[in-house]
Design a binder for these strands. Structure first.
Lengths: 270, 270
DNA sequence: TAGTGGTCTAGACCACAAG
DNA sequence: TTGTGGTCTAGACCACTAC
């Protein structure tokens, strides 16, 4: 099924509260395949997202109203709304009652993801490497037990790693995991990131609580990361939960502040 | 309208992949007021959220199925689904096809909000105060112009503030705003936070891009914040956008790492 | 096989914004 | 007044899970 969607372009102008102004209409090719196993609303939202990404739907442009769009595609209005809503949730579209649905103006990227240092480095073309400094089972200290929700003194897995990029140390990672959660080989830990291994083991990561701070490096930390003594370090502690709410990982990480910073996109909850 | 909702309690046990186990049933009081202007799905989601918050719905417990719940409350299934979905989006519930809807196990708090240092301090009972060090209009440097999406050299508002708690400096805040966006009195800036003033001026904050890092304090910065020279500082840069996608604020902040850290909750996008 | 959530329809009425 | 999104209904069929 295929439809030509007229898109009303909007040219913004300097003003405290800009009003939408309709300038022209651009045809937008949309279609859904009812024989596909992909849900119809998802097909539509992906096409709209691609159109926004590729600039076919320009920032500020108005989508046609939902009823007409549904009619053109042969879908019901709730289905079209579901597609649009998913993009509103991603921050790509804004709805205004009595006005319409507009493409957001800014270069909004992705909402914050549960970031993996390994993936971040790889995406930045930094060729990450990992040295496993220690991989043991230890009794949980009071702090670790509280974070992981296990009994104090019960056995937990402890992994200490040094993450490098281009052969230079970037961060020191210390992680604790409940025993029995997954099999972990030291070789695997040197080849990829912890989150990938957990996902591959069938663990569905759901949420995490993070604390980011800074402090001066101790002599041992400075030595480990190749920084001068007293250099500023970026610190991150994180507890990660799976979809049943169990804590599946507690980590204490220190990053060379001269080499790394956290960047993320926030959406204001409405 | 009132209904008794039976809740199947779930007792978890140590296991790599825990299965739900039904132990007992707890009645849950739910009702909706059809004469209220508050949407029905919202009334329901608020009551469910309160029940989770207060421990009436315990972590791991199963909600009854959607059809039955709809019948008990005299609502349609899509309305009940909308209520449940909003809590799933908040990370409070998890749905599993063929199983049911469960309360998440962990102490998941709020998803990440666009944080305001002023509000954070106030919520922590720290009695925040602000010193306005400068409040001027200046030509935009290339960096500020790029961040705010205005022409280089065009006039922008510049605000420099020192944020204190209990009379102690906590952070140095330097912000740039497009001119004409809102009226700002120095007195207002000393009484509350910038975000509150922007919201009060009718600006709908929508998203922000943040970078968090660390570095050693310069002598001037150390002096300003009452830290020794070379002390580690936590730095944050932020561009905030409104719902039309315009950049409405660009800020460069430095925090005393000994006094402040960022804490936030992440939900893994699914 | 039975029960669950996932998806979808074809309507309806209302609240809000704009002209 | 007109048009938009916001909410709601009463069904339907399907996919997945557990027994």
């Amino acid at each position: 099924m295929t439809a030509q969607l007229p898109v009303n372009q909007h040219r913004s102008y300097a003003r405290a509260v800009p009003k939408p102004e309709v300038d022209q209409t651009v045809p937008l090719q949309l279609s859904v395949d009812r024989n596909s196993p992909v849900p119809l609303y998802f097909q539509l939202s992906q096409q709209l997202e691609a159109a926004i990404e590729h600039g076919v739907l320009t920032p500020g442009s108005l989508l046609g109203n939902e009823i007409e769009l549904a009619g053109r595609l042969g879908l019901s209005r709730p289905t079209v709304r579901q597609a649009i809503q998913s993009l509103v949730d991603k921050g790509l579209l804004v709805r205004r009652r009595g006005v319409g649905t507009q493409v957001v103006h800014s270069q909004v990227k992705r909402p914050l993801e549960l970031s993996s240092l390994y993936d971040d480095l790889e995406a930045a073309g930094q060729r990450p490497a990992t040295q496993v400094l220690a991989h043991t089972h230890v009794p949980a200290t009071a702090e670790v037990a509280a974070r992981l929700g296990v009994g104090e003194g019960s056995e937990v897995r402890c992994v200490e790693r040094l993450r490098l990029a281009h052969g230079e140390p970037m961060a020191y990672l210390c992680n604790f995991l409940p025993t029995g959660l997954l099999e972990l080989e030291t070789g695997q830990l040197e080849a990829t990131g912890l989150y990938r291994l957990m996902r591959a083991a069938g663990i569905t990561l759901h949420s995490a609580r993070q604390t980011v701070g800074a402090r001066a490096a101790t002599p041992a930390e400075a030595e480990r990361l190749g920084e001068p003594a007293g250099a500023p370090l970026l610190t991150m502690q994180r507890i990660t939960y799976d979809d049943t709410g169990r804590a599946v990982e507690y980590g204490t990480h220190t990053y060379r502040a001269s080499r790394y910073s956290f960047e993320f996109q926030l959406l204001v909850r409405s």
